[in-house]
Every structure is written in structure tokens, then in C-alpha cells.
Amino acid sequence: MRFMTKTAIAALIGISFGAAAFPAQAEFPEKPVKLIIPFRAGGGSDGLARAVQAVIEKEKLLPAPVVVVNADGAAGTVGTRHVLESKPDGYTVLQIHQEMFAAAALGRVNYSPADFEPVIQASQGCMFVAVPIDSEFNSLQDMLDYAAKNPGDLKQADDIGSATHFPSAQLMAASDTSWTIVPTGGTSKRFAALKSGLLDMAFMSASWITRGKEDLKPLAALGNERFDDAPDLPTAKELGFDVEACLNRRYWVPAGTPQENIDKLADAIEIALHSPEVAAYLEKNGETLSIKRGQELKDAVAQDYQRYVDVVEIVKKSSAK
């Protein structure tokens, strides 16, 4: 009996501690790849990452599993730093949109996009200019004219220094006006603020075109092309304002990661992105597939970042008045 117990304990210990050491394989990845999402579970970033992860798992696109880790905090900088400080070996991957550029452009953090290597761009989710349904503004021009005539009177629900504040500053620069940015929070808080009647305008994500159709009036789409859900809604570019407010979800690794590992990750993610599961997820979130890799991706990153840096002064002092 005693022997039995001893054996059982020994076996238990053996199983528990032995499991950590599995046989070495030559091929990357030999151990689980951590995909860091610097936002909370259940948000837009998390949803895409989980969908991609599920397909990679199901189709066995990589020899080792991908594990999604939510490292929320300080507007995405906690998780980003986590990746920055990890070994550049391809086992720690970050998925983030332009929130990273916003923090870097404002000098809130001591890193920049140059400290990372982009792996692949996955999707694009564009926003639109929304006003309450009973608003007096019927076009983007109406609203901008009002802003020009009544400095500081127009109030936009947004987050100061966030990835939507920068495109707002672009619109201010393009139309040579300015207005007041009122810090409220994410899209659902912005919706509440518009509904309360205290605020006049907000940039909302595409899914709110249908979701908010009884409460919101869209004035302009903020992507390069019109929305499929709202073919009559003109883009700001068509109206003559060079503004683009689209969240480009991209995957990153720390600079210095071996190129072959980056390629393997990018290949697996790209196949996953073409799956019907991911397509379904993107569709219901009003996002589109927008795959970019290699030099094309590096150019897009440089351009996006530069456009943020260009308007950083406006962002810093867009207090109107």
C-alpha cells in the first residue's frame, strides 16, 4: 500500500515536471507562440486575434500552438512594452492598430514603430463622421461651416491622444478649422454622449452604421472607399478633405527577429485570414480584409506614422479656444 502511494506520488511529480521538457524540434516554432493583445478580452482586437488563433489551431498551420494573451492597460502601452522587452525570436507577437503610433507620436512612450518589425497587416476598419439623428447638420460641409463660424462651439466626443483623435486633427487641418474634443471613451460611450444631446459629433466605427441607424446620422465615410452598407454616403476624400480614419490591425515582432521566423508567422496568419471563419468575423464588425506584407507593409507603416507625426501639434493643442 505504502509502495503504491509512493509510486503514485512519484508518477504525479514525474508527469507534472516532466511535461515542461518536450523533445527538441528543428523547425520554428518549437514552443507555443504568444500573441499579445494589449487590450481587454472581448474588444475588436481580441476578437480578430481569437478568430485567427482558432483557425491556426484547427488547420494546424503552425507546428506549435498560438496562445492569445490579453495584456491590457495604459492605452495599449503595457502590452506593447511587454513585446518590446521580449526576446526577438518570433515567439512573442503583438497585434495592435495605430494606437501604437499615437502613443509614440505624442512622446508618451520611449519607443517608436522602428523598434518593431511588422509581420503582416490583416484588416482595416474605417470610421465615419456621425451626428445625432436630429442634428441640424445635413452634410460634412454644414458642420465644418458651423465650426468655422463658431470657434470652439462644435463638440466632438472622443478620447484625447487616441488613434481617433489624430484623424480628427487631420480633418481640422484639412478644413482649416478647429473644434472642441470632449474626452468620453470608446465607441459605445461616444454613442451615449451623442444620445445625451450634450455633444454634437463623433467618429464611429463602421458597425454603427447599421447598429445606430435610428439614432445617428452619418455625414461622411472616413476610408478610401465607400462602405458596402452605405453606398450613398460619400467619403471625406470625395468631398475634398484628405482624411483617413481607419484602424489597420497589424502583427508585429521586436526588431531583430530572424526574417525566416517572421515569414513563417506571416504565412500562417495569411492563410488563416483567408478562412471563412475570419471573413465572417470581419464582416459582422464592418471591417475588410486588407493584407499587406514585406516592403508594401513597411511603406504603409512609414506613411501612416508620418501622417500622425504631421498633425501631432494640432492634437496637442486641440482645445479649441
Partner: peptide, 17 residues
């Protein structure tokens, strides 16, 4: 907020409608 995320994930279109 997490419950809201669950609705989005399951295509249940949360919101005023």
C-alpha cells in the same frame, strides 16, 4: 463590457436596435 464583446463575437449586434 465583456458581455458586450460576447454579443459581438456571436454576431448578436448589440446596440439600440
Amino acid at each position: 463590457a465583456v458581455l458586450l464583446g460576447a454579443m459581438v463575437i456571436h454576431n448578436l449586434n448589440p446596440g439600440p436596435l
